[in-house]
Design a protein around this nucleic acid. Sequence first.
DNA 1: TTGTATGCGTTATCAG
DNA 2: CTGATAACGCATACAA
Lengths: 329, 329
Amino acid sequence: MVSIKDVAREAGVAISTVSKVLNNYPNVSEETRKKVYEVVDRLGFVPNTVAAALSSKKSGRIALLVKMNLKTQAIDEINMQYISGAICKAREMQMDVITIFYSMISDMNVEEMTRYFTAQSIGGIIIYGMDKEDMVLHELIDSGNFKIVVVDAPMVNENTSEVTIDHKQAQKDVACKAIEGSDVKSILYIAGMKNGYVTDLRLEGIREFVQEESLELTVKEGDFSELKAREITFEYGKDTDAIVCASDLMAIGAMKALIEMDVFHPVCGFDGIILMGYVGKQMHTVRQDFAGISAAAVSELQRLFDGEAGQKVLLPYELVRLKYEDIIR
Amino acid sequence: MVSIKDVAREAGVAISTVSKVLNNYPNVSEETRKKVYEVVDRLGFVPNTVAAALSSKKSGRIALLVKMNLKTQAIDEINMQYISGAICKAREMQMDVITIFYSMISDMNVEEMTRYFTAQSIGGIIIYGMDKEDMVLHELIDSGNFKIVVVDAPMVNENTSEVTIDHKQAQKDVACKAIEGSDVKSILYIAGMKNGYVTDLRLEGIREFVQEESLELTVKEGDFSELKAREITFEYGKDTDAIVCASDLMAIGAMKALIEMDVFHPVCGFDGIILMGYVGKQMHTVRQDFAGISAAAVSELQRLFDGEAGQKVLLPYELVRLKYEDIIR
DNA sequence: TTGTATGCGTTATCAG
DNA sequence: CTGATAACGCATACAA
């Protein structure tokens, strides 16, 4: 294995000089910089990220904290996008990534969790799908021991950023799109999990929308469950003119129920997962670029590592309608 | 951060002794072992895996090499199962995991790839979805520089194991199940990628099956593409009595095409992905426990780390038929 | 601007 | 059976 020592010897400089060149330190002459780089790619030197992480505590080792649902496939689609988006971006930015499923550490308290991450030389964490009741995660954020980027949760402080889309506006937009052209007077809204942050935002959106449009609104808790949405639809589906769902999965559940009931109402979802293309009936939905969101989270983490303060990063979304023909390849 | 040094001091022994206890070395008295463990969990000590990896070259740091199409957002249920299965098992076995997508390193040659892994202190690799034309991966395996477990590819040597199911038998079984009760004389088989290892095995299976049952067989290359299976079905679907597909996605493509053509033939798939439940028509398929396969791969890697020779590990499969009602929750 | 020396938290090799 | 101590590869104060 070719190490920094070999490069130093070959280039006729000190190890520390090589290190400085590699880490873009200011005070290095252009000449030695060139010389070092020449040797680096002549020898095909690749810095050992593990050693770097050990040596410097503020290394770029980050953890992706994913809440995975072992049952539902569509949820996996989203997490897969999150994971791949982060991993690719992280590699681009020379950061080391480990993926952790929440269930693996959900029994820990803050101290244990802190030790767990510290023991792995992890300095930054990206949290996906955090909800209001994840007390330990809240404490972890408050502790200030790590740079953290939270996706879709309003946590911003000196070393915590949020990356998200405008859920409220998106919910309004998609509802609007879904009922346009139909004579809709009342809407059944199937909401997400009660303790979810996005649930509130989307709920706000739909409330504002029905107010502006003078529509009637019925809200039911769907818990992001396809089955629950299905049951809710069976019970209340025919009494309203349209069904707006807080997730694609629930929209699918609702739509399939409507079909079985042999009634047709506009249904719209949220997320833009591919699965929507398989349902037969096309539905409007909000397409989130999960991989892009995740990549942005990685960049944001880098910003925090660079000592800048946390902030809220708002990313775009788009309204789509997935056809089977569009999604197969 | 509490380190091994703190434990040693607190327990009144040497650092090396603590290390030996933690790594289950033989020559340690039961007494000191107890004493050390007592201090370990009193202090909540968690070993730093990064330091361990740096120090010991034969560390349990492993890489998951996943082939995924990152360009298109796809239903990547299988890879997600692979990844989560491996990560969970690895944590259980105290191994460190990093996930790498093949596209991130596909432009490297063996030397570069070797340096890349070495630089990350990676000693073991699990390769998913390798095919015959991945020359660099073949070289990587032959180099003997890493302990490697390959999923679904016949690579076994001193430090390489294979984990797989009996694809040939499974293909026979599912085809048999699919046509049982129907008067089928001819079968359209939509095969996978030409350069895939499992493609050959499954093809063998279906060939043997039609021979035993004296059926007619037409084989077309579907490349594991839903779209291609759809097109093939449009072209040849009505001339045969049943369609056997080498993957669920292709089965879905074929089934949807048949529905559009308004003809009904038995169709069966392979893999057992949840998506099958969304198609409407139920199809028989081979359910592979991807997470379990992946977990087995991790265990196998540990075996290799322990100095044992590579082997072929055969895991079970089952025949299923997914209904929408079964998959939603 | 460059080099020296020390430390990061482990593992592993020897003496004892 | 236990304890010093030298690596592992890199980062970084500090000295030159």
